[in-house]
Write a protein that binds this DNA or RNA. Sequence first.
DNA 1: AGCACGCCGACT
DNA 2: GTCGGCGTGCTC
Length: 743
Amino acid sequence: MAKSQNRNEPIFRVAIALPVYRLFDYLAPERVELIKVKPGIRLEVPFGKAKKIAFLVECVQHSDIDIGKLKRVERILDEKPLLSAKDLALLHWAGRYYHHPLGEVFSAAFPVALRQGKPSVIQAEKRYALTELGKATDSGQLKRSPKQKSVLEKFQTHQNSLSEAELSAWNENWRSSVKLLIDRQLLQLSVSESGTHAAEQPVVRNDALHCNPQQQAAIDTVCEGLGQFGVFLLEGVTGSGKTEVYMQIIRTVLERGQQVLVLLPEITLTPQLEDRFRQRFTVRMAISHSKLTDRQRASAWLTMQRGECSILLGTRSTLFTPLKNPGLIILDEEHDASFKQQEGFRFSARDVAVVRGKLLNIPVLLGSATPALESLHNVDNKRYHLLHLPERAGIATAPVLQLLDIRNKRMQEGLSEALVAQMRLTLAKNEQVLLFLNRRGFAPTLICHGCGWVARCRRCDANLVIHYDEGILRCHHCGQEQRLIRQCPACKTGELTPLGLGTERVEKVLAELFPDKSIVRLDRDSTQRKGSLENYLQQINRGEVDIILGTQMLAKGHHFPNVTLVAILDVDSGLFSIDFHAPEKLAQMIVQVSGRAGRAEKPGRVIMQTRQPEHPLLTTLIHQGYNSFARTALAERKEASLPPFSYQALLRVQAQDAEMPKLFLQAVVELAQEYSKGRTQLLGPVAAPMARRAGLYRYQLLFQSGRRPELHALLDVLMPKIEKLKQAKKVRWSLDVDPVDLY
DNA sequence: AGCACGCCGACT
DNA sequence: GTCGGCGTGCTC
């Protein structure tokens, strides 16, 4: 039949973004010059009834599929691959290491617009600036249009022009106001000032700050290592001048004509670093994070790919952006768990960055005040080179940490009398107080005083959290809400009482205790409105706020120079977790929160309320510092053969049916025992710590081995078989290699 | 992931 | 007698 005459047709083996491990074979397009076709190019292929975008993996001569059944590639989308051979190798490595389908890995490397098959064209980015009229206009005149007023103020408090990307990061809905302000001739389109860099022009526009010897040593060490692979761990407390070190190293990289990729854990941290970089560097800089439009992200990606831009600042997903002249990868706050993607393709941006650095033969610079235990372990075994910044730069002094024993003490909504007294002293000196409580809402539990009934989520194994402001009960795990009830549904008589502490409740008592003070609450609920976080931060730094109260989001990066007292209201809640990562996370959180205080010339103090004043984690951390804590914690991990002294992968399963997840994992265990020759342990199957979430029943199975190759060899044979398991079709499962969150 | 095929319940 | 429920299986 037709079979034989086509025997020598070239076959395109492609990856398609699907949750399956196998690749798909297609007939090459007719009249194609095979020499010009390189792996990595995007293709459009017929797939089932639809068309899909595919990535060419290789050209082969033979297919296992009957050649008559193969379809033909419809269209070639790229003349040349947008990814280099080394970046393709990185994706293949990541697919193998995380045991994730290659098509989805490829898909993650491209910005949305390109993975949908859009052409690789760059949309020029617009910038806006004040007109002379805009500079002279008092924003008070716009008080009848508050959105325009705030946009005008944004420009008036900003030195340079603002790009679409910067405006989007600040407030997603800026377009209409900017348009109206242009109509009023207060704003104008500005000629792209950050794109003016010419080859002969200096890369920096102003002088570097003076560095202390340790900073200089760090700069020199990394700069000497440019042009070859090496991982540097820059350990420096808040205020030790890490950013200055980054900038001086970046300058050298730029002067070599190379590009720099800078990764941050969170979008909210990009504007401040972007500002500092723009003040220092003349080169073009791209920003990429999920608040930007698909078009903006595609432009950032392509300008880096073409080498038209020298610095890329972005979050986790930016890691795979191709670089025409790669020089350096910086990953700031490397300990931060946000660098681990928590769904789908669960990669660690830190670990993949290191592999990327190795493939590109460039240095990787990791920065943190509280390095991850794995990173310190990698310093110990000489894989990473430690650069230590022991001092605070300038004249700032380190904050003093102290424990406040609250056993048997009178408490008012989580505040001890001693703490309130310290707050009064601080406020009397006109200095700011920061209170940290990592629980939003009014109270985490609503309990009946009469019968003990507790408000539970119907779809999760969790209690509903009281949100008085909104008059609702909300589940923090599935988002389900219901009206706040007044009467106990069980006994109809008892009094419903809020139990426990949330930021809303503390805010209320603060308002009573300090009626003449201005209080700001920063948590996901109070900052949901776009741009409100930035507005609050500005208020705080203008000194219009006396007491700052907030959750996790306070712990990251933001500087509050006039804060001299920090209190961690409930440090004990972090001491009792089944996850072995918990002590590390708690210690990092304490040090990070402490870093918010006592910058500038005013010394800061940190008070931790605890009922465990003798707890070794707390005493070690306070008296000997983070590094001693880390040493102790690493010794404990070693003793217990936990990571980084062993290697883990967690197989998670969930299903509507209560029994299926367990049955599926039992089948997996049978398979694993058949193929596991070595000493890879199987821990489970066990119910997940939260056995039901959003209506789904959850189970998990942990693989652990003292040798990484052994674990991966097992997973290599196991995963394709798991995919074909008949039980697999009735559940949703995912593998998490190097899990950081065992929940 | 989509999407069609397929075999059992309440409607014109 | 049909419309449609979502269980199961396939996509080169």
